[in-house]
Amino acid sequence: MTDISLQENSQSLADLSARVETARRAGAGDVRFRITALLAALLVLAIFGGVIASLLVGAMPAFKAFGFGFITTEAWSPTRERFGALAPIYGTLVTSLIAMVIAVPVGIGIAIFLTDLCPRPLRRPIGIAVELLAGIPSIIYGIWGFFVFAPWFQLHVQEPVANAVADIPVLGTLFGGVTFGIGTFTAGLILSIMILPFISAVTRDVLETVPSVLKEASYGLGATSWEVMWKVCLPFCQTGVVGGAMLALGRALGETMAVTFVIGNSHKIASSLFAPGTSISASIANEFTEATGDLYRSALIELGLLLFVITFIVLAAAQLMLMRLEKGKGK
């Protein structure tokens, strides 16, 4: 009897210790898993830090050589090793500005059409079609812009416009001169098509958050669709629309291949928007692999650093705005 009870006892003891062992192992596995997840999250931060650090290190020689004059001078001469970033900075800002001027109203218009005006069965297909524009890779816009769009644009838009405005004071300078098809304006126009889906997608999402009671109340007071949209819905969605537009601006500023194909790659600030120019990203893409000499390469990396800083500020502002919106939604 005693033997048996002892045996039973030791068996349950062994059983218990085996269970403790399993639990301990599971606990260790749990810790390992948690640490792996933490490390992966930290890797994201490390990549971000690495991007900034490598750009700073790479840009150092150029910064030492030119100081802050780098961003205020226009001269770009690899043979004499003089580098100024004014023309690319100007090109980046102007192409993005043109893109925003076109894409913001059109993008909002598409969103309004899709939420309020479009017949229900057409809503999904048209929505998907506009989103497809966002899926087409940058280089496709580039090759299409270069071979198909630019020649067409030169013949049917640029030349007639340039001729028509030749003698008008301000417009004549902005849109006059010899036309090439490619140039700053063409780049801005193609950029606007590329960022259109971002603006319309965000606007559409926030328009759908407008409480229908608000709309019904306004219609009940006799307001027209336009008045409901302009005075009720859009003010309600202000933060979201602005956030979405900033996100799109961030994309436009950094867009590379499409711009490289159609901007013309000339390091001169021309008075005419139809004239060839360059942008930060286009200069880097176009010249980096051919850059001979450390200073040349370093100047291009400093351009990259400038681009990263500019887009960081714009994207961070957009994030914060959209985050605030997200918080408001929770309430």
Binding site: F48, L55, F288, F308, T311
Partner: peptide, 12 residues
């Protein structure tokens, strides 16, 4: 930010 950062900077 990385999601929308210019890919050319990733190249650099």
């Amino acid at each position: 930010i990385l999601l929308s950062a210019p890919s050319i900077v990733i190249g650099l």
